[in-house]
């Protein structure tokens, strides 16, 4: 990589807080044909590299089924990897056995309600992780729980309630408190607001952004909503069918998408408001048998023959920023694509 500005050079030298490299995850398909001998494998994540500096907030954006939740679970060590490494400050998370270093990554789950034991009160939900924190004595627990709940903006009088007695917004605050009570360095948020009303979404996002900045947390924020990602992330990675197709600073990606899929994602936001654009048609291909070459070619209007055979890699495309990378063989034809979508 060539030299850019001084600041980016400094960033390059630092060890990233969270580094995912060449991650591959697949699992046996749960098809209804149980007796099939060789069950086809779902290739959910196919070679993902991510690197988050301390205090960074990266948004991972993609449609449902693109593998972003699988990636989160793999990072949390909840499912086995096929290949690749996940490292926090250079320590491989799937190798270390120490509980303390694993607890440096915590996660907020998509369905706050499902992620809590229905038979436990808010207080015990948030206390539960502390039982496994060796540094935390019993007498310290209630203080830590209180400060975590406060940090998450949870109404203290409701702490004796059960999860089903709370609203979606309050429940998500409990989930945030539970993730923060172990004082992690890295927070993975898997669609933390997608189940909420727009107004509750706004509150939770503001709270998360606030926590991230005051605590200088490193955050991987997974969502299907580009608006939400844009609101709180400073960098974005767009995922399609198990691969990152574009990554870079948020404003660069929104202003000047370099991959056709990103262009359509961003156009879909406008389509809810006006009807000037043509939405991307069709559905993503099955991850059971991903297409050869570029995964996006079956739906891409600017594809050519090489897209069928050659797999594009993430390359820096624009002159202004080396951090903005896209995996498209024809990113020079993006203007053409913009014309196609506006003239319907």
């Amino acid at each position: 990589m060539t030299k850019s500005t001084r600041t980016s050079q400094e960033i390059e030298r630092q060890t990233p807080r969270l580094e995912v490299s060449d991650l591959h995850v697949s699992f046996a398909s749960r098809s209804h044909r149980r007796l099939q001998r060789n069950k086809p494998r779902v290739h959910a994540v196919r070679g993902v590299d991510l690197s988050l500096q301390p205090g960074a907030c990266m948004g991972l954006v993609g449609e449902s089924g693109c593998g972003k939740s699988t990636l989160a679970r793999a990072v949390m060590n909840l499912i086995p990897l096929d290949r690749g490494t996940i490292a926090v400050d250079g320590n491989d998370m799937h190798r270390v056995e120490s509980k303390a270093s694993r607890q440096r990554i915590q996660m907020i789950f998509q369905h706050a309600h499902a992620s809590m034991n229905p038979r436990m009160t808010v207080e015990s939900v948030v206390t539960d992780p502390l039982r496994f924190d060796d540094r935390c004595t019993k007498s310290e627990r209630s203080r830590r729980v209180e400060s975590a709940l406060q940090l998450a903006g949870f109404d203290a009088p409701l702490r004796g309630r059960y999860p089903h007695e709370l609203s979606g917004g309050q429940l998500q605050r409990v989930a945030i408190a539970r993730a923060l009570v172990l004082e992690p360095d890295v927070l993975i948020c898997d669609e933390p607001v997608s189940a909420l009303d727009v107004s509750a979404q706004v509150e939770i996002l503001a709270q998360l952004k606030d926590i991230q900045q005051t605590r200088s947390l490193t955050m991987l924020f997974i969502t299907h909503d580009l608006d939400i990602a844009a609101a709180i992330c400073d960098r974005l990675a767009v995922m399609y069918l198990g691969r990152i197709v574009e990554s870079g600073p948020t404003h660069e990606i929104l202003r000047n998408p370099q991959h056709p899929y990103t262009h359509y994602l961003s156009a879909a936001r406008d389509l809810k408001r006006t009807s000037a654009l043509q939405p991307l048609m069709g559905e993503p291909p099955s991850p059971l048998a991903p297409p050869t070459g570029c995964s996006f070619h079956p739906r891409c209007p600017i594809k050519s023959d090489i897209c069928h055979s050659q797999t594009p890699v993430l390359l820096s495309t624009s002159q202004s920023s080396l951090q903005h990378q896209a995996a498209c063989l024809h990113s020079e034809r993006m203007d053409e694509l913009k014309e196609i979508t506006t003239n319907r």
């Binding site: 107004s199 909503d225 844009a230 609101a231 948020t250």
Partner: peptide, 22 residues
């Protein structure tokens, strides 16, 4: 007004963020 604001928020937050970082 609140509902309109909420719908606009994500969009406007994105815009303010862009303005700040550019």
């Amino acid at each position: 007004a609140r509902l309109i604001q909420a719908a606009e928020f994500k969009r406007s937050a994105a815009i303010t963020l862009m303005e700040r970082t550019i």
